[in-house]
Design a protein around this nucleic acid. Structure first.
Length: 440
RNA sequence: CGGAGCGUAGCGCAGCCCGGUUAGCGCACUAGUCUGGGGGACUAGGGGUCGGAGGUUCAAAUCCUCUCGCUCCGACCA
């Protein structure tokens, strides 16, 4: 992408209302635009990041055996009356009515709807286990939206729902998501720690929050320091192996880890003092097992091998990709701006033309840009007629991992400068070497 | 939902208390010249229903009333 043809409304100063670093940087980098309290447009740069995160979440869901579908944002109140949540959910649910005065709502979550889909088509235990998920916009009319997309009213959520014949099966389904989440967050460049969590209004009796540590986190968390060094399950993990998955989950839940709501000071005191860690954390995922809470009132049953109908055991599993954008920035930035992990950077590389209009520089940049694009590298070519300082500042602000700095001085010696955003390392290399290094 | 604030150009702000030229500054934007490796300089420009409505007054960004929007702290939450 040529920057001169892109929409990148970057700002030197952040708007006054933005307090936390991720919100400030997202506004300065021209990633989002607030349209209303807690409601945002995703501008081109931000949308690229959001989609890359979504893609990784999707890959890991699919790897675990979950099946993607897409449910609507607008739901009928009728479904929610079946589960009893239409009245129970309270003011956070945005209730609307259509032209026939029918009561509708903008979905804050989808347990009811997925249960309805399941009960309509699945009748036999032979079709289980099943895990259905979608990635769709949700709306929760938060009393107090804040921190940009970290706590917004409209947000993107990956929500998965598992269906099993019995509790043991449901436990395996839960473990699949547990492992998939560990892998997902690791691929996003985050160290996540699963913590025992309160189940809240969704209900149920087995739940973990996946927390990443960041000084600006919303909640206080307590855990054993060793979690930071745990190995993440590999890509070839066998998700069908009950014992194998249980062993992974057992290990990842063997040490103390709890959010403040579930914190047990007495138990924490049992952790050797140097291993105790209390920190701020951001919740990036939440998984629940809730048994027959929805299947019972809504009549989601399958026939078992013995010919008897049983209510299915369910779980639900959420990740907020839009919140993750902010969470990753909280965990990865410096004074100059965002430092994107390569996997989700809006562009993997930037080519900085320091002297637009200089024939040799233009030619070298053009070659590099075409070469990178041809090799499948998402590249942002800064071909604006700006001074070098502005280009450096922009590239650092928006966090492009690889930056190729091309100017007459270097080219006189046949060299360009290759810079890594994360470390600040730079070296003079030939354009061909630069291309080779970035393509990897 | 309790408490505290803020709305003046795309962004950051001054002006308001104490009403009175054509509403001002920095950045950004347009044109030009010089520049050219970490947000450069000069010259000339463009852009404003001062959130909205009503009121007081000879006169309102400024005073009064109502209203809309937004932010922060707390309680609550993916």
């Amino acid at each position: 992408m040529r920057l001169s043809r892109f929409l990148l409304p970057s700002l030197r100063e952040a708007p006054r209302e933005a307090e936390i670093v991720s919100h400030r940087l997202m506004l300065r980098a021209g990633m989002i635009r607030q349209q209303s309290a807690g409601i945002y447009s995703w501008l081109p740069l931000g949308y690229r990041v959001l989609r890359k995160i979504e893609a990784i979440v999707r890959e890991e869901q699919n790897r675990s055996g979950a099946i993607e579908l897409l449910m609507p944002t607008i739901q009928s109140a009728e479904l929610w009356r079946e589960s009893g949540r239409y009245d129970a959910y309270g003011k956070e649910m945005l209730r609307i009515s259509d032209r026939h005065e029918r009561e509708m709502l903008f979905g804050p979550t989808n347990e009811e709807m997925i249960t309805d889909i399941f009960r309509s088509y699945v009748r036999s235990y032979r079709d289980l286990p099943m895990n259905l998920y979608h990635i769709q916009w949700k709306f929760r009319d938060e009393v107090r939206p804040r921190f940009g997309v970290m706590r917004s009213r409209e947000f993107l959520m990956k929500d998965a729902y598992s269906f099993d014949l019995d509790q043991a099966g449901a436990r395996h389904s839960y473990n699949k998501m547990f492992v998939a989440y560990l892998r997902t967050f690791a691929r996003l460049g985050l160290k996540s720690i699963p913590m025992r969590a309160d189940t809240g209004p969704i209900g149920g009796d087995l739940s973990h929050e996946f927390i990443i540590l960041a000084s600006t986190g919303e909640s206080e968390v307590f855990c054993h320091r060793d979690y930071l060094d745990f190995d993440v399950p590999p890509a070839d993990t066998d998700f069908e192996s009950r014992d194998g998955l249980q062993a992974i989950v057992d290990r990842w839940t063997s040490l103390y880890a709890a959010t403040s709501e579930m914190h047990d000071a007495g138990e924490f005191a049992g952790v050797p003092e140097p291993d105790r860690m209390s920190a701020r954390g951001i919740e990036v995922g939440h998984i629940f097992y809730f048994g027959t809470k929805y299947s019972a009132p809504m009549g989601a049953k399958v026939t078992g091998p013995d010919g008897v109908e049983r209510e299915v055991h369910m779980g639900s599993y959420g990740i907020g990709p839009s919140r993750l954008v902010a969470a990753i920035i909280e965990a990865s930035h410096d004074e100059a701006g965002i430092i994107w992990p390569e996997a989700i950077a809006p562009f993997r590389a930037a080519v900085l033309n320091l002297r637009v209009g200089d024939a040799a520089t233009d030619a070298a940049c053009g070659d590099l840009y075409r070469g990178l694009e041809a090799a499948g590298v998402d590249t942002l070519y800064d071909d604006r007629d700006e001074r070098p300082g502005g280009k450096f500042a922009t590239a650092d602000l928006i966090g492009i991992p690889w930056q190729v700095i091309v100017g007459p001085k270097g080219l006189a010696e046949g060299k360009v400068e290759l810079k890594r955003r994360a470390t600040g390392e730079r070296e003079l290399v030939t354009p061909a070497d630069a291309l080779r290094r970035i393509v990897g």
